[in-house]
Amino acid sequence: MVLITLVSSDEQNFPVERELLKQSGTIETLIVNMNLDDEDTDAAAMPIPLPNVKGDVLEKVIQWMEHHKGDPVKEGDNEDNNAEIVVPQWDDDFFKPAMYGSKHLELTVAASYLDIKNLLTLSCKAISNTFKGKTGPQIREEWGVPNEFTPEEEEAIRKENEWSE
């Protein structure tokens, strides 16, 4: 079994089964282009630095890829109608501890950076689900988002939206 070492931004090493990394478009392209999975070359021992992904986030990404090992990998732009996507129970439970926290957003950004389409889609959908039926102030409170708007701006936006009620 070929292991490839990923190095997070905080310099933690994660040896990962090569097969799992096929889910990441970014890493897969790198491995193929650089022959990193060719055990006959010195390049195989070369770790892959991921300076945009922290260790704790990378650990979650790897955990997700392990569970989804063997799943079909989407190709091309992911332009599915996200409204129709259902987050499977395992993934819902996986995202839950991170709900209402920056970790969930970091995981989503990492999925985008690493080009793991299925993780990105499910993670975004899980975040969307937490917003359903909530008001703007409720979402701000739950997610700890500071209010950037002045009272005048907020009132103006409310007026823009009031015809939808």
């Binding site: 909530k134 008001t135 703007g136 102030p137 997610w143 988002v145 939206n161 009620e165």
Partner: peptide, 10 residues
Amino acid sequence: RDRCSLSLVN
């Protein structure tokens, strides 16, 4: 409605 709510977040 949810999109309108989100437009009030930030």
